[in-house]
Design a binder for these strands. Structure first.
Lengths: 250, 250
DNA sequence: CGTACAGTTGAGGAGATTCAATCATCGTGG
DNA sequence: CCACGATGATTGAATCTCCTCAACTGTACG
């Protein structure tokens, strides 16, 4: 019966083999046999409503999570209680990497909208790491990526203007939606302006102002959270233009 | 003869067993047998003068490096050619973690002063990772740490004032010198103001101004690169004070 | 239909940057 | 040994970007 009539949850949540995101989430060159083994330790289909937490800061670390659908933000609470948004995660992306082999989660992850995640318990992953040698490598790769993204963000925050930061975010989202074969020029922001501002180190008012400025320049069309990028080139031009301007004026 | 008369370099560069930094650099619970094995793959004692490069951005990744003495800065060159300092590394700290299991180095590392490093070739490390299981974990741990540090920096850059950033750097250096049993209240900055400014996202002039302000407040005594911290508490107080001010004025 | 929340817009102000000049430090060569 | 240039560091004045405060608009939802 197990073979003939899949349960409802199994239908909703096929294994990694069937998952359309597997190329993004675990894109290691493992044979299907290994993927099957992976399937055994990954629990799929946890559904979260907006605002629900996937894991909480300082809770004992157990698992990373792959986003299947929806969107997630991660943030840390500093000692004085202020929130710092550390990242937004779309389907196919993995959360909790920065807590691997630490005792506890370094931040909190909450769903920005209705979200499904796959849990990847890392205690067990260690055990089978020997059997699937590529896996440990892959996670190190993901962690390297995470460090680089963070460095990228650091550069953004330390040297770039409000316009550059926002253009950069719009483009980042664009390319990440594209990777999922969704439109890279027309999408809906999963997060409120306040989260964007927190993430980019800008006031919400500044987000608004810059977005309308972009709109007046014909770069984008924005209505609330709906974004349509009219000129990818124009946005990209903003990123590197800054230095050119300085050079020409100097 | 090899056994009886150690070479000069061997005297200068004892193995991990003898290294006073081993507790910081590779503080894994490995038995001395494992450390010996580690010794075999780590080449010690490469000496670099100020300005010399340890590795270069986009060069094929081969090794991480542990700083033995001196100081190192890492930076990336963005597409438009501007430099972004991504970190400072003191003895006992490991460079290149963000490039593990990537094809190439994500940035350049250069010596800020005369510096000795140990090379940790990671191709070979993989091979013996099975024999020393703690090692792979340890590197993941270091990488997690790196991500967190980067997040911390992100918070610093996106939400903190110039005073907070600089106080934070002074305190970070203080605690890192302390870990090495050096004075945490009196040390010499290994980097010029321009690197500090680049790292913290501030103009050099701002660094100067804030440092003299600190000095006038009796928090530190600064003469060029020599720093004496007169009130650790005072500096720490600056870090969380910001929000309190806002709250009281609101 | 009104309340709550998210987003936009405007005016004023604070903090950091930029530009420019000065001062200090250090290694170099006369 | 000292003068010299070069680089690094400091200080001042003007400017600018972004923040804060405030009012207002739109939208979702009871």
């Amino acid at each position: 019966m197990k073979n003939q009539i899949p349960t409802a949850t199994a239908l909703m949540n096929p294994g990694c083999n069937q998952c359309s995101l597997s190329k993004l989430c675990i894109p290691i060159a493992v044979n299907s046999e290994d993927i099957d083994r992976l399937d055994e330790i990954i629990s799929r289909g946890r559904v979260l409503e907006r605002g629900e937490r996937i894991f909480e800061q300082d809770a004992p670390f157990t698992s990373c999570y792959a986003v299947r659908s929806g969107a997630v933000k991660t943030y840390t609470l500093s000692s004085d209680g202020e929130e710092q948004v550390t990242g937004f995660y779309l389907p196919g992306e993995v959360i909790g990497l920065d807590s691997i082999h630490m005792n506890q989660y370094s931040g909190t992850a909450t769903a920005l909208e209705r979200t499904r995640v796959c849990e990847i318990p890392l205690g067990q992953l260690d055990e089978i790491a020997d059997e699937i040698p590529g896996l440990q490598h892959h996670f190190m790769h993901l962690m390297s990526q995470e460090i680089r993204d963070s460095r990228q963000l650091t550069l953004l925050l330390s040297k770039k203007t409000a316009e550059e930061r926002i253009a950069s975010l719009l483009l980042s989202l664009s390319s990440r939606f594209s990777r999922r074969r969704l439109s890279g020029t027309e999408y809906r922001l999963p997060m409120p302006r306040s989260d964007i501002g927190n993430f980019l180190g800008l006031a919400v008012e500044t987000i608004s102002r810059v977005l309308t400025r972009f709109q007046n320049q014909g770069l984008v069309k924005v209505r609330g959270r709906d974004v349509e990028i009219l000129s990818l080139e124009g946005l990209k031009g903003l990123l590197s233009h800054e230095t050119e301007c300085k050079r020409t004026s100097a």
